[in-house]
Amino acid sequence: MSAIVEFREASYRIGTRDILRGLTLSIEAGETLVLLGRSGSGKTTALKMVNGLLLPSSGEVLVDGKSTTAWDPVRLKRRIGYVIQEIGLFPHYTIAENVGLVPRLEGWEETRIRERVHTLLGRVGLDPEQFGDRYPRQLSGGQRQRVGVARALAADPSVLLFDEPFGAVDPVTRLDLQKQFLALRSELGKTSIFVTHDVREALMLATRIALLHDGVLEVIAPPAEFMENACTEARAFLACLDWKAETV
């Protein structure tokens, strides 16, 4: 296995404030790395450094062995799928146009784009005939989120980034989406980096969990080992699982 994405002492600073400090981490092909942490822990910052939305203040981030500062910024972003909360869909594009966006930017032929959109919508569980011509606002939150995943997959990227994608949907829909994520992973075998503050989601989806606290990587471990970890921040997250009504 080889590292597809590699952080080398990567830091990110705004003014004098350190958002991320000396992150060193490598992500292997096919794995799902979950960046877990509280709000402000630097997890989203780390994610955005992978596709060059943010560039490290010091250190470097390598994608396919090449520093993100050396990549052409547009090429780099088109190689990497990006899923954010459903609000990131373009409201003035139909579902089919949203999904076909990157292939269209890449100059694919229209028939090939149409076929690709058709396949992807089917794969995320949306009937292309029924949904293709609708606009995002005509869909439910869960459906929009599926469109977001289809859009990120469109140009067959080698890495997918998920920025708390299921945060805004209800718990039942979220579970559906999480199951689908697992199904897609076993089907496509994509490398994914997934940001969440939900420890349950992290344990369910991750092949490895990276716990960030105040911009520092505290733990990196597969879910089973993470459960046994003794560090304070890991215990704080795991305590969320143990809470029961009678302890109040």
């Binding site: 939305l53 547009v74 090429r75 088109r78 990006y82 954010i84 909360q85 990131g88 930017l105 859009r151």
Partner: peptide
């Protein structure tokens, strides 16, 4: 324009 829409446009690799 919603910042999330703008950011996702940039993240999709729009110039």
């Amino acid at each position: 324009v919603d910042p999330a829409v703008r950011e996702s446009a940039v993240a999709m690799g729009m110039t």
